[in-house]
Simulated scan of single mutants.
Amino acid sequence: MKRTPLTSGIMYLILGTLFVLLAIQNVNRTGWGFFSYFLVLLATLDFGSGIRMILLHRKITSINKKNK
């Protein structure tokens, strides 16, 4: 099965959302500690990667449409 940038981007966005939810629960339970900041950092990286992958998919499809 081929893994496209779109599916990778969606998976990154889902992971980013999961990390945000875990960070919210951790802050509500224990306050802002190292683990909370770490989860927010992971969520930020995942959202950035997800957006970049989706934009890459759009660019690839637009190039493929121009070549046809």
Rank of each mutant, 00 (worst) to 15 (best):
V40P: 08
P5V: 00
G9C: 06
L6K: 07
M11C: 06
K65S: 10
T30S: 14
F34L: 12
T44L: 11
R3W: 01
I54W: 02
G48H: 05
G9A: 08
R58Q: 07
M53L: 11
N28Q: 14
V27D: 09
A43Q: 02
L6D: 02
T61F: 06
Y37R: 12
L56V: 11
Y12E: 09
F35L: 14
T17V: 00
G16A: 07
G16F: 01
I14M: 04
L13E: 03
V40W: 05
M1L: 07
D46W: 02
M53G: 05
Y37S: 15
L41K: 06
I63S: 13
F47V: 02
N67V: 13
V40F: 13
L6Q: 06
D46Q: 01
N67Y: 10
V20S: 08
T30W: 13
G33N: 14
W32F: 14
S36A: 15
F35S: 08
N26E: 15
S49T: 02
M53C: 12
L13Q: 03
T4L: 04
V20Q: 06
K68D: 08
L6S: 05
G50H: 03
D46C: 06
N67G: 08
F34Y: 14
R29G: 08
Q25N: 15
G50N: 01
Y37Q: 12
Y12H: 12
T61A: 11
G31H: 10
I14P: 00
A23P: 05
F35H: 09
L56A: 14
L55F: 06
L56G: 09
V40Q: 09
N26A: 10
G33D: 10
